[in-house]
């Protein structure tokens, strides 16, 4: 078990090192810009994975928490003289409180019912973004959102934003990995496998689900706030049902319960439309197809597939080494 833990730390450090070194080798700012969005989407996918992959509870309303983070931050900093950092904290706090309150009735529901209820919640929030024009600017959006800054250091270019977003993302990834191998992570996975048995073992399933839903909303809202302050313009179109489905697809493609899988899923779904122009028209067809095919044939996602092939290759190498010896 100790070896497993050490290996995990090693993998994370390696991953973090690569992430931190990438900007040195990348010349064009366009790629850095894409990587900033991969970072934000990874945050969101990890947030959904905590709920869906760990606890087995679906949410089709993740875009709403993302949007709440973005809009609360955006409104506070454009309509009031609030410091962007404070706005980020307030935004994350508000989204968590809302998630905690609606979490109790909503997480009583299971499966399709939960999907429908979270979808309904997402659409209500989306309608509010569109209709409260005085606050949000309605469908034409909210512009002029200030950048975050640390003293004289302003996060207004791609390189700075890259480090800002990725420090946050790496932090959340590490915390999520820690969580998975803890008392709380086990309780969540137990609920996923058999809620009845988990409760009989003394796990307060309802409270646990509400907690992880709240954490998920908290992280999504931070992602929203970072998004608003880095691109300085937001409009409701970024926070609709389609984006919730996109997040779902990221998590499923990468692998339920796998944090690196969420990174992989976020990377693929962010890159594809950037580099394959044709993809833009085909996006939802492909998302739909991916959701179906991965669920049917590769339930552990791409990371699961990769791990499996590594294992097979390792055994082959081991086998041939033994044959030679």
């Amino acid at each position: 078990m100790m070896i497993k833990e050490k290996r995990q730390i090693f993998i994370f450090l390696l991953f973090a090192l690569v992430v931190l070194l990438v900007p040195i080798f990348l010349k064009g700012s366009y790629f850095l810009n894409v990587l900033v969005f991969i970072g934000i989407n990874t945050l969101l996918a990890v947030a959904l994975n905590l709920l869906l992959g760990y606890a087995g509870q679906i949410s089709l309303g993740q875009a709403a928490f993302f949007g709440l983070g973005a809009y609360i931050s955006g409104i506070l900093t454009t309509r009031f003289p609030v410091d962007p950092w404070l706005a980020l904290v307030v935004a994350a706090g508000c989204a968590s409180v809302l998630a905690f309150v609606i979490g109790f009735p909503i997480l009583k529901l299971k499966g399709h019912y939960l999907a429908m209820a979270t979808l309904g919640f997402g659409i209500i929030v989306y309608i509010i973004f569109n209709e409260t024009v005085d606050w949000t600017g309605g469908p034409s959006g909210l512009s002029g959102i200030p950048n975050l800054r640390l003293g004289p250091f302003v996060f207004d270019n791609d390189r700075n934003n890259y480090y800002l977003v990725w420090m946050m993302t790496l932090g959340v990834m590490l915390l999520s990995i820690n969580l998975s191998q803890s008392r709380i992570g086990r309780a969540l996975r137990a609920i996923n496998d058999s809620e009845v048995a988990a409760r009989v073992m003394g796990v307060n399933a309802r409270m646990m689900k509400v907690q992880i839903f709240t954490v998920s909303a908290f992280v999504s809202a931070i992602a929203g706030s970072l998004y608003a302050h880095t691109i300085t313009f937001i409009s409701p179109a970024s926070f609709g049902f389609n984006f919730s489905v996109e997040l779902l697809t990221m998590v499923i493609i990468g692998g339920l319960g796998s944090i690196y899988g969420s990174f992989l899923g976020a990377t693929i779904l962010t890159m594809l439309p950037e580099f394959l122009r044709v993809f833009r028209d085909f996006d939802i067809v492909i998302y739909g197809l991916m959701l179906i095919l991965i669920t049917m044939f590769m339930p552990a996602g791409l990371i699961g597939g990769i791990e499996m092939s590594i294992k097979i290759i390792a055994e082959k190498i081991k086998g041939s080494a033994e044959n030679n010896a």
Binding site: L52, G56, I58, L60, K110, G111, H112, A115, V245, L248, I252, D281, F282, D283, I284, V285, I286, Y287, G288, L289, M290, L291, I292, T295, M296, P299
Partner: peptide, 23 residues
Amino acid sequence: VKPLSLVIITIGASIFIRGAAML
């Protein structure tokens, strides 16, 4: 299959049909 897989497959089918209609 787990109930969750069925949820995801029907969601997938839904957006697949919608996307195909759009194309």
